[in-house]
């Protein structure tokens, strides 16, 4: 009985969370963001403020989910993410809210975002206003945006799988992230996201919640010094090495303890 009640409670809150996610996103787009735009002198100032607002909104969302006991959340090495230093932050992507969890502790991070969010009815305005990077742009545009972010000292969040991880399947990375790190060049900060239950995975609906409260865990791993890699090998080889090394790293971490 208690379990059943707990399940229904989590279902209710999850629904409310999804609803408010879109609703708040839309409301911020039509109220706060235009106001910020008017009060900002430069484009840089504007997107930084808007990203900070997104960061605060996500903090509130995570705090509510914790408060209502819908999720549990652990963090290892958070302080190394919150101090942004112009790195490429690479993470696996098991669930829909990984990026919400990460942005809740990163105040002004740049993000590489899937192109179809640009036309999303409620969130399109948010990703546009925040000046995030579309993942389907031509390589020059993407590189230029990444260079700018790194120069301004922001971290860039990238999910090299390009989409959410399929549970149980080996991690396969696209090379784009390594190309960025090697060309800009910038360091790679490795982050691993795990969740005790399968939830909010690719292709699942919001109401398919797990039997028990899921516990998310974000662990900030090592920072790869890309310049040392580049000193040893030509760029094309470094890119392939980084891609392979990180695929192995995540597969070891996720599937072999």
């Amino acid at each position: 009985m208690v379990r059943r009640l707990d399940y229904l409670w989590r279902l209710l809150i999850t629904g409310a969370a999804f609803l408010s996610f879109s609703l708040f996103g839309f409301l911020m787009t039509v109220t706060l963001f235009p106001l910020v735009s008017r009060l900002s002198r430069t484009n840089e100032e504007r997107v930084n403020r808007i990203r900070w607002l997104i960061h605060k909104a996500f903090q509130l969302l995570i705090a509510s989910l914790l408060f209502f006991k819908v999720i549990d959340f652990g963090f290892k090495g958070a302080e190394r993410l919150s101090g942004e230093r112009g790195r490429l932050v690479v993470a696996n992507h098991p669930t829909l809210i990984d990026v919400v969890l990460m942005l809740s502790i990163m105040p002004q991070a740049q993000c590489m975002v899937k192109h179809n969010l640009w036309s999303h009815r409620f969130l399109g305005g948010v990703v546009r206003a925040a000046g995030y990077i579309r993942n389907d742009g031509d390589p020059e545009t993407i590189l230029e945006a990444c260079r700018a972010a790194i120069q301004q000292g922001h971290d860039i969040i990238v999910f090299p799988e390009g989409t959410r991880t399929v549970p149980g399947k080996p991690i396969k990375f696209q090379r784009g992230f390594a190309n960025i790190a090697a060309i800009v060049p910038c360091n790679i900060q490795v982050v691993t996201v795990t969740c005790s239950q399968e939830t909010l995975t690719k292709g699942s609906s919001w109401y398919e919640i797990p039997k028990q409260r899921p516990r998310f865990y974000i662990s900030v791993g090592e920072e790869l010094d890309v310049k040392t890699y580049l000193a040893r090998e030509p760029r094309a080889k470094v890119v392939r090495r980084l891609t392979r090394e990180l695929e192995d790293y995540y597969n070891r971490k996720l599937y072999h303890g």
């Binding site: 390589p139 784009g176 190309n179 060309i183 094309a236 890119v239």
Partner: peptide
């Protein structure tokens, strides 16, 4: 080969 490789 990707477009960045092509430049190389």
């Amino acid at each position: 080969i990707d477009s960045i490789d092509a430049v190389d």
